[in-house]
Design a protein around this nucleic acid. Sequence first.
DNA 1: ACGTAAACAAGACTAAGTCCCAATAAGGAG
DNA 2: CTCCTTATTGGGACTTAGTCTTGTTTACGT
Lengths: 129, 129
Amino acid sequence: MNRRNTAQKRAVYDCLMEMGHPTATSLYDRVRERFPEISRSTVFRILKEWAGDGEALRFSVGDGEDRYDATTRVHYHILCVGCGRVEDADLPPMRELLEFHDEENGFRILGHTASFRGMCPDCMKKTLN
Amino acid sequence: MNRRNTAQKRAVYDCLMEMGHPTATSLYDRVRERFPEISRSTVFRILKEWAGDGEALRFSVGDGEDRYDATTRVHYHILCVGCGRVEDADLPPMRELLEFHDEENGFRILGHTASFRGMCPDCMKKTLN
DNA sequence: ACGTAAACAAGACTAAGTCCCAATAAGGAG
DNA sequence: CTCCTTATTGGGACTTAGTCTTGTTTACGT
């Protein structure tokens, strides 16, 4: 019942903070550099637990792999379609999305997400052959 | 090079129109009721091709499985966290999202998506024990 | 009717994510 | 500080969305 503070959790937390919006696999690769004996399932389990408890955000930018974010307040993301990088969008939460009520279908709205697709400066350079 | 009109494509198109926002697998199951010999990879290939050509929309509502939509204009979706149903949100495209320019990171923005999580009327009934 | 290349069926393959279970270790009680 | 309980871990099996390959079929222009 009680949560325990383990070296594995500290390592995952540190890497999550450093990396910003990692996928579980990329976070696993990073953690392993410092903590080689950590297991893949441990990383996935820790992230899933944090997301379930609201201690981390789990989201998708539509590239097929879920991402995690230590910042849980509402904010939006940008995916670079060139290299897969994800950054925070510099845009405040939108009132119309926060306050949306679904009269049409009668859903009780619990939350929303939004994300942009784009191309980062590095990939734009590489693209103009 | 030339596109060919096949019975498989007609069947996939018909089911896509009927179903609204199916996942590839659910669409495959539906198509198979009328076209039992169609193969799974054919359904995935057709949907992928249409999404690549802009003839269909491929999107995610964060439940781990991509969805397809014959309606390609910008619009938003609602996922029922109870039963997994997806409906269109009755909300026009948001100007701030359409016109967003990313000064912060310098991305060239190509598009955006947004979706809501919520609970549908049926699931709300079932939930109030 | 024919030839060619697009499309198909079948199934191997990849990878994200989950689940299971025996072994380990955190941390509270004494 | 030591012991005990049980949360957590490591390792690996398993599931499933999605892709890819290959030999066969078929749409459609000539």
